[in-house]
Amino acid sequence: MMFRRVAMTDLVAYGLILVFTAISFVPLMALVFFIIAKGLPRLDLDFLFSISPSLESGGILAPLFGTLVLTVIALVIAVPISLLAAIYLSEYARKDRWFHLIELTIVNLAGVPSVVYGLFGLGLFVIFFGFGKSIIAGALTMACMSLPLLITVFYQSLRAVPMTLREASLALGASRLATTFRVVLPTALSGIFTGVILATARIAGETAPVLFTVAAYYMPNLPESLSDQAMLLSYHLYAISTQNTGVSDEQKYAVTLVLVGLVLGINLLAIAARAKAKNKISSLV
C-alpha cells in the first residue's frame, strides 16, 4: 500500500515536470520549422541581394546591409574596450569594495532595458554630441548596450586560465602586462571569440535601441556615410508587420526567416566555439 501511493505521487510529479518542460521547448522548435516553411518559398538570391524600389516589392539588401554595418561598427567599438575592462577586473583589480561595485554595476547594466539604452543614445549621441539619427549614433548605442555582456564573457574566459600559467610567466621575469598579452589572452582566445559572437547575435537582433538612434523606415539606397540613417533587418520586420503597407505575408515570413536564421546561426557558432574553449581549458588543468 505505502509503496504504491508513494510511487503514484512520484509518477504524477514526473508527469507534470515532463509536460511543463515540453511546453517550454516544443513550441520553440515548432516555431522555427513553421517560419522556415512559410518563409523559404519567397527566399531567393534576388530577394536577399536587391534593393527594393518600395517597401512592398521585397529585396532586403538595404536592411541586411544596414544590420551588417551597424553590428560590425558596434563591435569594433565595444570589443577592445570590453577586453581592456575584463583585463582590469581579472588581472589587475584587487578584490575589494570597488571591485564589487563594478561587478554589481555590470549586472545592473546588463539588466537595463534596451529601450532605455535607446533613450540614452538619443540623449547622448544623437542630441548632445550632435550626431543626429545616424549609423554612428546607433552603433555607439549598441556598443554601450553590449558592453556588460562582452565584459562578463571576457572576464569569465580570462578567469578560466589556470593561475599556474600566470605564475610560470611571472617567475620567468615577464611583467604583468606581458603575462596578460602573451600568455593569458592567447590561452583565453576561444572564450573571447565566443563572447564576440554572442554579442554579434544580440546586436543583430535588437530593435529598441535603434528606434530613435539610426533606424530608417524606408530608404531607396544604401547609406553612404556613418552620418546617414540606415534600414535595419529587425526594424524592417517591425515596420512591415505593424504598418498597413500591403506587404505580403509571404514576404514578412521571409524577412523573419532571414533575421531568425542570422541570429540563431550566429548563436550556434558561439555555442560551438564555447565547447571548444572548454575543451582547451580543461586540457590545461
Partner: peptide, 14 residues
C-alpha cells in the same frame, strides 16, 4: 540559449 536569442520583433510578429 537559442530561445534567449530569438529577437523580440520575431516574437511580436508571431
Amino acid at each position: 540559449e537559442i530561445l534567449a536569442s530569438v529577437p523580440s520583433v520575431v516574437f511580436g510578429f508571431i
